[in-house]
Design a binder for these strands. Structure first.
Length: 277
DNA sequence: CCCAAGTCCTGGTTGC
DNA sequence: TGCAACCAGGACTTGG
């Protein structure tokens, strides 16, 4: 579930708890989850470097490190990734993929653990800036660098379903399957509509729902429909506010019609055929 | 056997 | 016809 609001929830906590801490020791790595670097490079490069800043673009976390080479640690949580910050005695568990001991000048030692049941998460360690694939992302869905005319321009001639368009991180970065269903319900647009078929008014409606839905997710500290927890292991609250996602067979709270489930872009998709046109 | 929040890759189709 | 852009679907991985 880590989509933009969940990753932002984690980013805020990391910014508070690990900024200014220094990597002391690399206890565990999962080489298959590494990109742009090797296990040896991680073990050789991280110790001694401080975490100077914790940033985010879409679903990626960007940790700027101190020292020679302008190194960045770029993290993606995949489908089931978790970042936990705790005591330095944290032990390697069955789903621990990375475990780092952190120290600091005048601060308590800590441990930062990257857990991931399914190993779809990724860790990149790169000099000179964040991982190269960051450059392929569109604007962050939460910021104000984009507007309805941007979406209209990107939509031109696109035959893919509007939901597939929203899930494509090259258009906007950060929207995943849950928030896509929610945004489309609020905008009263059917997820199966061809992207290029949206009117100017519909594109405006869509634009008007994207940031508020993501902001609500952040306010409730994420959506714990399945695996998501924050860096302290706490669940979020957005799962209780879902209007469409996972509601197949139930009544639509807006029009009373029954939600249907279809597959769009290979993902389970729930929408109301009564009011999402 | 079914399903699951993520991205990446491939092979086939479309259309300039 | 040539070929890039586009698009759907599968692969990856583990668990409920």
């Amino acid at each position: 579930m880590p989509e933009l609001p969940e990753v932002e929830t984690i980013r805020r906590q990391l910014a508070e708890t690990v900024t200014g801490l220094r990597f002391a020791h690399v206890h565990a790595t999962e080489p298959n989850m590494l990109r742009d670097c090797t296990d040896q490079e991680v073990r050789a490069t991280l110790p001694g470097r401080f975490i100077e800043e914790v940033d985010r673009l879409g679903k990626f976390l960007l940790l700027r490190l101190s020292g020679e080479g302008k190194y960045y640690l770029t993290l993606h949580l995949g489908m089931t990734g978790q970042i936990l910050v705790g005591s330095p005695t944290s032990e390697v568990g069955p789903h621990t993929r990375f475990l780092f001991a952190l120290g600091g000048l005048g601060s308590e030692p800590a441990a930062m653990e990257f857990r991931d049941i399914r190993k779809f998460g990724r860790l990149h360690l790169t000099p000179g800036g964040p991982a190269p694939r960051i450059r392929l992302l569109g604007p962050d869905a939460l910021n104000r660098e984009w507007d309805a005319s941007y979406l209209a321009a990107r939509s031109k001639g696109r035959k893919i379903a509007i939901k597939a368009f929203l899930l494509d991180q090259r258009n906007l970065a950060g929207i995943g399957n849950i928030y896509a269903d929610e945004i489309l319900w609020w905008a009263e647009i059917a997820p199966i509509r061809a992207t290029q078929s949206l009117s100017a008014g519909e594109t405006e409606r869509l634009t008007a729902e994207i940031r508020p839905r993501l902001e609500e997710g952040i306010r409730l500290r994420g959506c714990s429909i399945s695996d998501f927890v924050d860096t302290k292991g706490r669940t979020g609250g957005f799962q209780d506010r879902l209007m469409a996602y996972g509601r197949q067979g139930q009544e639509c709270s807006r029009c009373g019609a029954i939600f249907v489930r279809v597959v769009v872009a290979g993902r389970g998709t729930t929408y109301c055929p009564g009011c999402q046109k």
